[in-house]
Simulated scan of single mutants.
Amino acid sequence: MIQASAMPVIRLISASTIQAPSQADSAQKIHLTPWDLVALPIKMNQKGLLFHHKPSSSQIQHLRHSLSTTLAFFPLLAGRLMATEGKNNTTYCHILCNNKGSLFVHAIAENTRVDDILQPKYVPSIVNSFFPLNGVRNCEGTSHSLLAVQVTELVDGVFIGFTINHVVADGESLWNRDKEHLLDFDPEPERTFRRRLQQARLYKAAESTMDANNADNANVANPNVNEQQGRVLGSFSAPTADLYGKSIVVPPIAANNFELKPQLVTLV
Rank of each mutant, 00 (worst) to 15 (best):
L267W: 04
E140T: 03
D211C: 14
L133V: 01
K246W: 02
L40V: 03
A255K: 13
C97L: 05
A109F: 12
H31V: 06
T152F: 00
K246R: 14
S57T: 13
G79W: 01
E180P: 04
Q46H: 06
K100N: 11
L81Y: 00
T240V: 07
G141K: 02
A20K: 03
P120L: 08
S129C: 09
L67T: 01
Q19G: 03
I60L: 14
D216L: 15
D170I: 04
N176M: 14
L32Y: 05
G157V: 03
P34S: 09
N256Q: 13
A206R: 15
L154N: 04
A6D: 09
N111V: 06
R80Y: 01
T90P: 01
G245K: 05
N88Y: 07
N165T: 03
A72G: 07
I160W: 02
V38R: 15
S5P: 13
M1I: 10
S26K: 14
G245L: 04
L197P: 08
I30P: 02
C97I: 02
N165E: 01
I160A: 06
D25H: 12
N98P: 07
V168P: 01
P124I: 06
G161E: 00
N128P: 03
H106R: 08
A15H: 09
E85C: 14
S125C: 11
H166Q: 08
R11H: 11
I42P: 01
H52E: 14
E190L: 15
N165A: 08
V232L: 14
A238N: 10
S5D: 12
A255Y: 04
P187M: 06
K261T: 13
F131W: 03
L103V: 01
M1P: 06
S247G: 08
